[in-house]
Design a protein around this nucleic acid. Structure first.
Lengths: 253, 253
DNA sequence: AGGAGTCAAGAGCATTGCTCACATTTGTTG
DNA sequence: CAACAAATGTGAGCAATGCTCTTGACTCCT
């Protein structure tokens, strides 16, 4: 059984632990390469072992099984996507809510198109027989929705998120869910805008998935960039963001 | 090599051809069962052969390889989804555009939740190394978008699809794509509504995929039915459908 | 120095997709 | 009806895969 991977108990790492960590990193790196080259289901521990210059059974010292490696790659990919999104959002001033929304969506799409296999691992059909251990993946896996929601929340607190008129209130069971989410994430947006944020979230990934997975026909859209930009603009409006640039004062707090 | 599967040349089928077709149907049926039980990537020709009561190599007389069986299952699933959607839409009067839209979306979700593995085969990450032969799958694979678009087109021709106000026109490259689509599908809706229809399309499947693939957290939404109903209502408005009374226009600029 | 902990190697098992040579069934035709 | 040819089924076999187990070696700490 692989050892306790890392319980940072304060003690300085022994050379052995460092070597072990280095090997695990190598395995993840090689696994990532195989992933982008041959896809998730074709990920082979034996092939990784070959590239590592070691016999197949040796990798089981570091990685419990194929699922464990998939989990490591899942976390790795979630974090890379989260980093990209965070960087793209942070590159724009905090008051430019619409710009930041656009940057977030574009970053997701850019990363997905650049890493289709890893995107598929995150947002495609689940690998059969593989259940991601939520206690390890929810953290990295929720970075994008957290970024999106805090973005929308910031816009709301700045008075730049306009609730749509004529929209019926959400039904009580859904309101209960939304209330819990609002509390857990420390948000201020009201139910209707929160629900719309969730819809925008799923819609963003729906559009990206259709493009990455080739769900549009092969030659349906010759201008996918423009299509996505248009979708993103409509989604910004759907979320309640006013499309025009924020010329007024800075952040509220 | 599997024979010419079926070139309906008018001649009555010989008993042998009928037996052959029956065997292929059995293979597809067994494959479907394995698909729903163990997922797409775990689909095994040998297991199907075992269930068929025949030695493994015998199935290659009927199915060229594993990919071929996947293609058959793909077409099978596309058609079943298409049938469900068509039936749900046809159950409501043609003039009830909003109701039909709701029925379409609900039918997609219902089928997806009932057949998660097959839904994943259709709309999840592509099976690695497998390229669906477009000449055989585009027909069944476009039934839902055709149903959606003709529904929206009917509403537009009936004057029940209101273009949102304050929406900028689409850029020329995208307009060219939309024009071609409009021509190919014989539609009348203008660019803005057509683009919104595409967004509604991807958003619908985005919401369904999130739910089926467990992309929402495990216990994020205790009321998924209400969440989806809410999303569907918002998407209907986004498409331009007036729910009962004409909704307010787009956000003021 | 010695023992506990760690690691790599290689054999082995069950599984898969797929091919091939051979046997058997089946329908047609001389 | 008998012979032939096409269609179908059989079983062995190859190259992979994930994973386990035993064996030996190596490292580090007391």
């Amino acid at each position: 059984m692989p050892q306790t991977a890392s319980a940072p108990s304060g003690k300085p790492p022994t050379p052995r632990e460092r070597a072990r960590e280095r090997t695990i990193n190598d395995i993840v790196r090689l696994g990532r390469e195989h992933l982008v080259l041959h896809g998730a289901a074709a990920l082979s521990l034996r092939a990784v072992a070959r590239d590592l210059g070691v016999v197949s059974s040796a990798v089981y010292r570091y990685v419990e099984n194929r699922e464990e490696l998939l989990t490591l790659l899942l976390i790795d990919a979630y974090n890379e996507l989260g980093d990209e999104v965070d960087a793209a959002v942070a590159a724009l001033p905090e008051a430019d809510h619409a710009g930041r929304f656009n940057a977030l969506g574009s970053a997701v799409r850019r990363w997905a198109l650049h890493e289709p296999a890893r995107y598929g691992l995150l947002f495609g059909s689940p690998v059969p027989g593989y259940r991601a251990p939520t206690e390890r993946t929810t953290g990295p896996g929720t970075r994008v929705i957290h970024a999106l929601m805090s973005l929308l929340d910031g816009a709301y607190r700045a008075g730049r998120l306009v609730a749509p008129g004529g929209q019926a209130a959400v039904v009580p069971p859904l309101a209960a869910d939304l209330e819990r989410i609002r509390r857990d994430m420390g948000l201020a947006v009201p139910d209707i805008l929160l629900a719309r944020g969730a819809l925008v979230w799923t819609s963003l990934f729906g559009a990206v998935s259709f493009e990455v997975f080739g769900q549009y026909g092969a030659d349906t859209f010759a201008a996918p960039d423009e299509l996505f930009a248009h979708h993103l603009a409509v989604l910004a409006g759907l979320a309640g963001l006013s499309a025009s640039a924020p010329q007024d004062g800075g952040p509220a707090e």
